[in-house]
Simulated assay, not measured.
Amino acid sequence: MGNSALKAHLETAQKTGVFQLTGKGLSEFPEDLQKLASNLRTIDLSNNKIEILPPLMGKFSVLKSLALNNNKLTALPEELCKLKKLETLHLNGNHLTQLPATFGQLLALKTLSLSGNQLRTVPTQLCSLRHLDVVDLSRNQIQSVPDTVGDLQAIELNLNQNQISQISVQISHCPRLKVLRLEENCLDLSMLPQSILSDSQISLLAVEGNLFEIKNLRELEGYDKYMERFTATKKKFT
C-alpha cells in the first residue's frame, strides 16, 4: 500500500475519528497513526499480518474500540492497558498465549473477544474489570476453569471449543453471569457443578458436544430451577 493511500486514510480518520484499514497485508502498526492519537475513537486493522503492537499504543487516550482480528500477534504490550476509555477489544484469530499483567487496568472494557488464540487458562486479570459484559474465549486451549472465575463480572462467557474437563464450583457465584457457553469441550456430567443449575444467575447454559447426553443433564438435581430461570428470561425477550 502506497504512502498516498495511507495519507488519504489518515485525512479521513482525522475528520471522522475512525481509522479502518483491513485486509491490506500490513506487517506493522502504522506509526503515522500516532499523529491522531488524541482524536481517534475507533481503530480497525483486522485481517492483516501485524506481529507486534508498538508501545505508542498507550497514547490513544480517547480510543473506544480496537479491532485486530486475524493478525499474527503473539503478545500485547503493557502500554495497551493505559487505554482508559477502551470499551471494545477484538483480538480473534491471533497467537496470544496470555494477557499483560496490567490488563485489569482497562476499566472501561465491556466487550472482549479472544476467540481462536492459544490461551490455556481463563485470565485472572479479567476479574478486575467491573464493566465487562461479554467475554469470548472460544476456540482456545483452556483445560480448566479456576476458582478465581467467581469474581468475573461478565454477563456472557463463551468457552465453546476448548478442552475443558474441570470447572470450579465458584462459577455459580458470578454475580451477573446469565449466559454460559461450554459447547464442544471434554466435560463429563460429574464435572459440571450442580450449583450452576440450582444456585446461580445463569439462565442459558449451552453444553452440547461434551462427554454426556443432554437428556442426562435434565435428570440432575436443580435442573427444574434452571428451567425456571431459562423460561423467565425467554419470556422477557419474546
Rank of each mutant, 00 (worst) to 15 (best):
L53H: 01
V179C: 12
L68N: 02
L126M: 11
E213M: 08
Q14L: 07
K15W: 01
S128G: 05
L56R: 03
K234S: 04
C81N: 02
E87H: 03
V122G: 04
V145Q: 10
R176E: 15
G104R: 07
T74M: 10
H90D: 15
S61K: 14
N160T: 03
L112D: 08
L80K: 02
T74H: 08
T124K: 15
A75G: 07
P123H: 00
L132C: 08
G23A: 10
K24T: 05
D224L: 12
P100I: 00
N48R: 04
L36M: 08
K85D: 13
L106A: 05
T22Q: 15
E156M: 10
S144G: 13
S4L: 14
D44I: 07
L73V: 02
L132N: 04
L33R: 00
L45A: 07
L132M: 09
L89W: 03
L182R: 03
E28V: 01
F29S: 03
L126I: 12
L211A: 08
S144P: 09
L10P: 10
Q194H: 04
G116Q: 09
L10N: 00
L66K: 04
F103K: 07
Q163E: 13
S165L: 12
A101G: 12
I155H: 09
T16L: 07
L99N: 14
L99E: 06
A232T: 15
V149I: 13
P193W: 01
A5F: 14
K7Q: 14
L126T: 06
K215H: 10
L26S: 00
F19I: 00
D188W: 05
K35D: 09
S4T: 13
Q98V: 06
D136G: 01
Q143I: 12
H90T: 13
Y223W: 10
L21E: 14
S46R: 04
L53S: 00
L106Q: 05
G222E: 03
D136V: 01
N162G: 13
L73I: 01
A5W: 13
L192C: 07
V145T: 08
A37L: 07
P146V: 04
N210M: 11
E213N: 08
L63S: 01
D151R: 08
P193S: 02
N140A: 05
K64Y: 11
D133K: 04
T12R: 14
H9D: 09
K35I: 04
T111R: 08
I171W: 15
K236R: 05
F230N: 15
K234A: 05
N39H: 10
E228V: 15
N47H: 15
S128N: 09
A13I: 00
L220A: 03
L68D: 00
Q194F: 03
V62I: 11
K49T: 01
Q105S: 10
S113E: 14
T22A: 11
T12W: 12
N92C: 15
K85P: 07
V207L: 10
M191W: 07
E208A: 10
K15D: 10
I171E: 14
P54T: 00
T121A: 12
E78L: 06
S144V: 03
L76S: 02
G209E: 03
A13L: 06
Y223N: 01
